[in-house]
């Protein structure tokens, strides 16, 4: 397995020009076609997308536009029907389930709308989960999980179970879990969808801070324009095609 455990982006200023010349995500002419009975559903119809280090972007589009399909492919949960996708220089195309799992483990972090924390399990244990599958054990695992929880501002809540935490705190745990294996990028699917406005703002500010301080690429899949406001790039997708790709401030 070629997945390296070294952080792709430990800090923004550590990226050299050579690395900068290569996109972390390279999607070329990707098609995704589902067979629904006799019907053929063309969810993606030739998508091209490059994402460069330190970017924070939103993929926006109405329901059924194909944005979830694109996110699944970028997140290595699914493979394209045709086309090319390389993540951090690794061609994902020919990989089997276990190799994809390995990539997800080391290079990707997921944040979901409904947090998806393990119930009856402490914040620390939830954050340790990706470390278990990465093969980190014992003291090292505990320390790393605690360190990341501290980073998201939950250093004093290590032993709290999800039902003892507020929605915002639960999402912070989920973000810590996404961060813990030092991924190249974090994929966040409507991360503020289940939160009140104020908490949503706090979470977006946390993402922004992580992006700026750690240089982690963050990709939001959302149809919330307020989320998009925090991004420096917005990709609009419609009917399986990229409709617009605009840089913002």
């Amino acid at each position: 397995m070629s997945a390296s455990s070294t952080p792709v982006l430990a800090a923004p200023n550590s990226t050299t020009e050579a690395e900068r010349s290569q996109p972390v995500i390279a999607v070329r002419d990707v098609f995704k076609i589902y067979q629904m009975g006799t019907m053929e559903v063309r969810a993606l119809r030739g998508v091209d997308l490059d994402v460069w280090p330190s970017e924070m972007l939103a993929i926006m589009g109405p329901s059924g536009s194909g944005k979830s399909t694109l996110m699944n492919i970028i997140g290595c949960l699914d493979v394209p029907t045709s086309g090319f996708y390389a993540l951090d220089g690794v061609d994902v195309g020919g990989l089997n389930d276990d190799q994809l799992a390995e990539i997800r483990c080391h290079k990707l972090g997921f944040v979901f709308q409904n947090f998806n924390l393990l119930p009856r399990t402490s914040a620390l244990a939830n954050v340790e989960l990706p470390l278990i599958y990465a093969g980190t054990s014992g003291r090292k695992r505990h320390d790393r999980a605690a360190e990341v929880l501290d980073l998201v501002g939950l250093g004093d809540r290590l032993d709290h179970k999800p039902n003892e935490l507020s929605g915002g705190q639960q999402q912070r745990v989920a973000i810590a879990r996404a961060l813990v294996n030092r991924p190249a990028l974090i994929l966040a699917d409507e991360p503020t969808g289940n939160l009140d406005t104020q908490t949503g703002i706090e979470i977006m500010e946390l993402f922004q801070r992580l992006n700026q301080e750690q240089g982690i690429i963050i990709i939001f899949v959302t149809h919330d324009p307020e989320t998009a406001e925090y991004c420096n790039r917005i990709v609009h997708i419609r009917d399986g095609l990229i409709e617009a790709d605009v840089a913002t401030n």
């Binding site: 276990d98 997800r104 483990c105 997921f110 998806n116 393990l118 989960l129 990706p130 599958y133 294996n181």
Partner: peptide
Amino acid sequence: TREIGLRKAVGAKRRD
């Protein structure tokens, strides 16, 4: 099912 999905998303292999 969701727990299994989550475990797989964060890197659990079939064998795990």
